[in-house]
């Protein structure tokens, strides 16, 4: 039995490991969500929570019903395939009840630059400018109609 006595400290070290492992299991039981792993490597309850969130975007169809004038302009311009809400932001609330909130007008200096600032990563065919050189701080809508931006397309103000 002497061996066990002289190896006693090793059992203490092992005991420390076992304790740490039990603590790990205990914490794990608390912090890992109950529905984790039900379908895959994620929290299953997250699906319901996300589905339950209010819808923020109304979609192009919704705008078409009321803003026919703008839709007509946009249909003929180069921005025909750019969604209204890509520029105006999520407007589901406005589409549900227009009087409840009036959308603010986008700041074109920020908005247009977001898509049209020249970058090596963009396909060469995509229209791009260096905003500082191109307009020198003048708001883009001074010269371009946001809904039909091409200058020669008759869309200019």
């Amino acid at each position: 039995m002497g061996v066990f006595k002289d190896a006693g400290h090793l059992f203490r070290f092992t005991g420390l490991f076992v304790l740490a492992f039990l603590a790990f299991l205990l914490i794990r039981g608390y912090v890992v969500p109950k529905t984790f792993g039900q379908y895959g490597h994620y929290r299953a309850a997250a699906i319901g929570e996300i589905a339950g969130r209010p819808v923020k975007f109304a979609g192009h169809k919704a705008c078409e019903d009321c803003h026919t004038d703008i839709v007509d302009v946009k249909m003929k311009g180069k921005h025909a395939h750019v969604n209204c809400e890509a520029c105006h932001g999520a407007l589901a609330k406005h589409a549900d009840d227009p009087t409840s909130m009036t959308p603010t007008k986008p700041d074109t200096a920020v908005l247009c630059a977001r898509c049209h600032t020249a970058s090596a990563a963009k396909p060469t065919g995509f229209p791009q400018v260096n905003p500082a050189d191109h307009s020198n701080g003048v708001p883009c809508e001074t010269c371009h109609n946001p809904h039909s931006p091409a200058i020669d397309g008759g869309g200019a103000k």
Binding site: D6, A7, G8, R12
Partner: peptide, 10 residues
């Protein structure tokens, strides 16, 4: 770890 056994065996 509370063990002060430093006998030659240990």
């Amino acid at each position: 770890l509370g063990s002060s056994n430093i006998s030659p065996r240990s």
